[in-house]
Amino acid sequence: MDKSAKTKLASDIENRLDDFFGEQRPAPSATASYSLEKLKSAVLSIDWEITDACLTDLIDQSEALLPHFETDPITHALLRMLRALGRYIRKRKARSHQDAIKRVMSVFSSLETLINDKQLDEGQRKRIVAREIQAFKKLKEQIENQRAVKYAAVPAAPHDEREPTQNELSALLEHQKFKQAMQAVEERLSAEVKELKAKVDTLQNELKTIRRS
């Protein structure tokens, strides 16, 4: 490969990597001023790359806006949801629920609509926030259920008084871990089967209506 082809390759690789991983931004400064623009860029950064810095920015910016909407409970609720989601994702990182980021995007987009669209009447505003609250509650429930499953699988304390030996403990742990893993796999499979069954049902129904007509 000649030299210019080499340089070209190197810069193509670099561009692709920058696009994929995102440019690394410096951590945000502590002085947060009050504007939706800052919150927006925090949200966009998260869509791009989920880092502690972006999430902290999201939390800070939501918080900074809160006092401005003390008298507007609808907007206030959305900001609090954003802050809660930011805190949750920052804490759980890779282990956070797969829909959490989607929620952030959705709540922010509703927030933007509420603030920017002056044509909305009170009923429309309420419907928007009600939808977000419902989705938020659903996510919360799912997260709590995930945890409930894990705790449910933790071994019960031994009946006799003596402390289990190291060997017994590790055997128990290994066994429980394996059981948990199996349970997770089983749950996932049965969810998939359920979904497939539902699809088959709708297809069969469609077929019936086609036959009838």
Partner: peptide, 22 residues
């Protein structure tokens, strides 16, 4: 890997697989 996964997970189709002991 966990950090990388948390930074890109919303843009990739795949999951991270970890096999750990306690």
């Amino acid at each position: 890997l966990e950090y990388l996964f948390s930074s890109i997970r919303h843009r990739i189709q795949s999951d991270m697989v970890s096999i750990k002991t306690h």
